[in-house]
């Protein structure tokens, strides 16, 4: 049965879009039929991160409003056959999305795909609540930093009250994805500890994504990091997280600081 996954955070800039693209690609690389849906109407970016910005014709708003069929708006990834993108509109605002329209589109997507990954906009307004509305499970993205942890707590509360599942008296499955984790700063005690974040938010850990140049390189060229450099630390962490989402029991790898010869001499580090 199809699973609807929302990638959300409350706070902006913590890595929702990067994580949506990487998790979606990792699930597709594992053979699942995946669509990633950009809910950030007016400020779309998932198309750019996935390298499909030149191929957008129709978008989520066109489909919701009946101006285009779903099949016409879906963009098939050129690298992974089982991966598709449903882009957001760049020119409208979030009021163009209606709850009924979104429900219809999600139900239609459920028939075609194994995984529907909804990339939520930041904030707790309409766009964010519509993105999580029909989710079966949620990935809450946070950085080891006070304000993003606080906002994550707020979004967990909203997941437990405003989703269709919550309103039906069911529990929505929630997972924590810790991104931009800097092993060096953690070792020096300059960053919130993983245990502290987990204790505060009290939801299970899906993965720890190290802060890495590979993530920036992948977004520069428009390719999810799990496809661009599968051997890199963040790609491996995302691939492991995807396996956990599929129900496999995989131990969470803790990123450790690796220093190269040049790094030792000049204080550079790689994740």
């Amino acid at each position: 049965m199809a699973k609807v996954l929302v990638v959300t955070s409350g706070k902006g800039g913590v890595g929702k879009t990067t994580s949506s693209a990487a998790l979606g690609a990792a699930l597709a690389q594992a053979g699942k039929n995946v669509v990633v849906v950009d809910f950030d109407v007016g400020l779309r970016n998932l198309d750019l991160i996935m390298g499909a910005e030149r191929r957008v014709v129709f978008d989520l708003v066109n489909v919701v409003q009946g101006d285009a069929k779903l099949a016409q708006a879906l963009i098939r990834d050129k690298r992974v056959e089982t991966l598709s993108l449903l882009p957001a509109s760049q020119t409208r605002d979030k009021d163009a999305l209606t709850p009924e329209g979104i429900e219809r589109v999600i139900n239609e997507l459920r028939e075609k795909f194994d995984w529907i990954v909804c990339d939520s906009p930041a904030g707790i307004e309409r766009g964010a609540t519509l993105a999580m509305r029909h989710a079966d499970l949620a990935v809450v993205v946070t950085n080891p930093e006070v304000s993003s942890v606080r906002d994550a707590d707020r979004i967990i509360g909203i997941l437990d009250s405003k989703t269709a599942k919550a309103e039906a008296g069911e529990q929505i499955e929630k997972h924590l994805l810790l991104t931009r984790y800097d092993a060096g700063r953690a070792a020096r005690g300059e960053m919130l500890k993983i245990e502290d974040v987990l204790e505060i938010l009290a939801i299970p850990l899906l993965g720890i994504i190290p802060d890495s140049e590979d993530v920036l390189r992948a977004s520069n060229v428009g390719c999810p990091v799990t496809l661009h450099n599968p051997a890199s630390a963040p790609a491996r962490a995302y691939a492991e997280a995807a396996r956990r989402l599929m129900g496999e029991m995989v131990d969470v790898t803790l990123p450790i600081e690796k220093k190269t010869l040049m790094g030792r001499l000049f204080g550079w580090k790689v994740a």
């Binding site: 030149r54 520069n220 060229v221």
Partner: peptide, 12 residues
């Protein structure tokens, strides 16, 4: 990769 990023953004 930065020149690729620049070119993609300019075009878009």
């Amino acid at each position: 990769t930065a020149p690729v990023a620049r070119e993609r953004l300019q075009l878009l």
